[in-house]
């Protein structure tokens, strides 16, 4: 037993913002071993310049996103290659954003509709000024050459210099 035991003093300080109440900086950071699990083939396909959705083996519903089982009937889906051209279903230009994306503002988000698909796909639109974007505008998928294995490996650009007229969604029960 040592009655003179002492913790070592260090040069580590604390960032202090305020004293009443005391407000300090508290840092928090984490690296995950994140698995895309059953959705992995979607990201692998992006690396090959392909956009994969899901087609239900039961009811035939086509999703423009990966979804291992059908939301409507519950059956398994199979991978289904989507066309590279679609139309803007809706859009926005973000002038602010979450901290991770602030440096990228302004950026334009679009939900893309495809012939033969019952649902939509969220992506970025580049190559059009915010005031040039229209619902119904034809857009084409482009793929990053150097993949990051993120959904932003695909993005969309306008097909033509001029916006095309709006088209209806493909028929079919969703």
């Amino acid at each position: 037993m040592n009655k003179d035991a002492k913790l070592p003093e260090t040069q580590e300080g604390t960032v202090l913002f305020n004293v009443d109440p005391i407000i300090i900086r508290y840092h928090y950071e984490i690296d995950y071993l994140h698995s895309y699990a059953q959705d992995s083939p979607f990201f692998a396909a992006l690396a090959k310049g392909k956009l994969m959705g899901s087609r239900c083996t039961g009811c035939g519903c086509v999703y423009a996103t990966p979804r291992g089982h059908c939301m409507e009937c519950g059956a398994r889906t199979e991978w289904h290659q989507l066309p590279h051209e679609g139309r803007i279903h809706t859009f926005t230009t973000c002038h602010f954003g979450g901290e991770a994306f602030l440096k990228e503002t302004p950026f334009t988000l679009v939900l893309v509709e495809f012939d033969g698909a019952n649902t939509l796909f969220l992506s970025r639109l580049v190559g059009a000024e915010p005031d040039e974007v229209r619902i119904g505008m034809a857009v084409r998928a482009r793929f990053r050459r150097n993949c990051q294995f993120r959904p932003t490996d695909v993005y969309f650009v306008p097909v033509a210099a001029l916006p095309s007229p709006p088209s209806p969604l493909p028929e079919g029960e969703g």
């Binding site: 990966p66 973000c94 602010f96 954003g97 979450g98 990228e104 988000l109 969220l122 993120r150």
Partner: peptide, 11 residues
Amino acid sequence: FDYPVGGFYAG
């Protein structure tokens, strides 16, 4: 699929 594209609820 959503957050990495520019996750922002106002968007």
